[in-house]
Design a protein around this nucleic acid. Structure first.
Length: 171
DNA sequence: CCCTAGCGGTGCT
DNA sequence: AGCACCGCTAGGG
């Protein structure tokens, strides 16, 4: 009777910011995706989302604006991260423990998970994070204070960290 | 700086 | 089952 549900995006709603329009996706369980500006138009919902989703979106909007400005989010919507593998969800859970300006390395997360050789796999899992910014994969750096990668575009990572006053090694 | 070997999880054949 | 792909890392030149 237990079934692994793919987190289906049922509603997509926009968030207008100074940096452009983000697209937030919601399943029946909560926020399940965040797309950066310029990654495709936000499709208009055929039907008006239920109140519950609108409340989630209000929380997510505030949290996103706060995080983009380098301030702690006061509220968060529920996250639906069930689409991930067990390993990915463990990594994403570690990301959620990081507050503004707090960073870890890929290797450190691997060690925390008891898999010290899995730093590269941690990087891949970060890259699959469906809710960047709010699940702060941008706070994971490579060894020696280097920037590492970012699926949403390395300039976004640099900007997000800069807003949080995190200094990163040049090159 | 560069290059290389080794690494683990994932997804596609 | 095999294999290529990766947001990595440590070590060496």
């Amino acid at each position: 009777m237990s079934v692994i549900l793919r987190s289906k995006v049922m509603y997509q709603l926009p968030v207008k910011t100074a940096e452009g329009e983000f697209a937030l996706g919601y399943s029946e369980r909560g926020l399940c995706s965040l797309r950066f500006p310029g990654t495709g138009a936000v499709p208009a919902s055929a039907t008006r989302p239920p109140e519950r989703v609108l409340r989630w979106h209000a929380s997510a909007t505030e949290a996103l604006l706060k995080t983009l400005s380098g301030q702690p989010a006061r509220v968060m919507p529920p996250f639906d991260l069930e689409s991930g593998t067990a390993f990915q969800r463990q990594v994403w859970a570690e990301l959620q423990k990081l507050s503004i300006g707090q960073t870890l390395t890929y290797g450190a997360i691997a060690r925390v998970l008891g898999k010290p050789g899995a730093s590269r796999a941690v990087g891949t899992a970060c890259g699959r994070n469906p809710i960047p910014v709010l699940v702060p994969c941008h706070r994971v750096l490579a060894a020696n204070n280097k920037l590492g990668g970012f699926s949403g575009g390395i300039e976004w990572k640099r900007a997000l960290l800069g807003r949080e006053n995190v200094s990163v090694a040049p090159r």
